[in-house]
């Protein structure tokens, strides 16, 4: 190979390396993302989903609220009403592809639980009715 030819080949190799590095750099720069905002929104969504639903007046249950049904469940009444109401409301309210787990404690003892998902942010809400402490917890999960 002549001297000139080997020099030119050397230059071509440098150009190719530079192009390759540039493409790699741009590729990695685009990959690096920030999920903090999305996590914050999931946290806000979970808390709001819990609080808003606890308060809603249920048409099919004599305008009772979920809080009322929780108290009834804790008072020895049928907890099926609570389960059905939760399913009805959360099916309407949550985005498609979102599942939930819900459990209720009365004076720190679990009185009701439904669990269709394991991984997600949990939000809880404590209220008092007739001197008794109730705690409702909700977990939202994306499938």
């Amino acid at each position: 190979m002549r001297k000139g030819q080997s020099e030119v080949i050397g230059l071509m190799v440098i150009v190719l390396i530079l192009i390759f590095m540039g493409v790699l750099y741009l590729g990695f720069a685009n990959l690096a993302g920030n999920d903090t905002l999305a996590s914050q929104r999931v946290g806000i969504e979970t808390e709001n989903a819990l609080n808003a639903v606890l308060r809603v007046n249920l048409e099919n249950y004599d305008d009772k609220t979920i809080q009322d049904l929780i108290v009834e469940c804790g008072g020895g009444f049928d907890c099926n009403q609570l389960e059905n109401a939760l399913k009805e409301v959360y099916t309407a309210v949550l985005k498609p592809g979102t599942t939930f787990s819900y459990w209720v404690l009365m004076e720190d003892e679990e009185i009701y639980a439904t669990s269709t998902c394991q991984i997600g942010i949990v939000s809880s809400y404590v209220f008092v009715r007739d001197g008794i402490f109730y705690e409702a917890k909700l977990r939202l999960c994306k499938t």
Partner: peptide, 14 residues
């Protein structure tokens, strides 16, 4: 999600 209040009917919706 937000809680919606209707004061005319004293009712909460989602």
């Amino acid at each position: 999600i937000v809680s919606l209040y209707y004061p005319e009917f004293d009712e909460y919706r989602v």
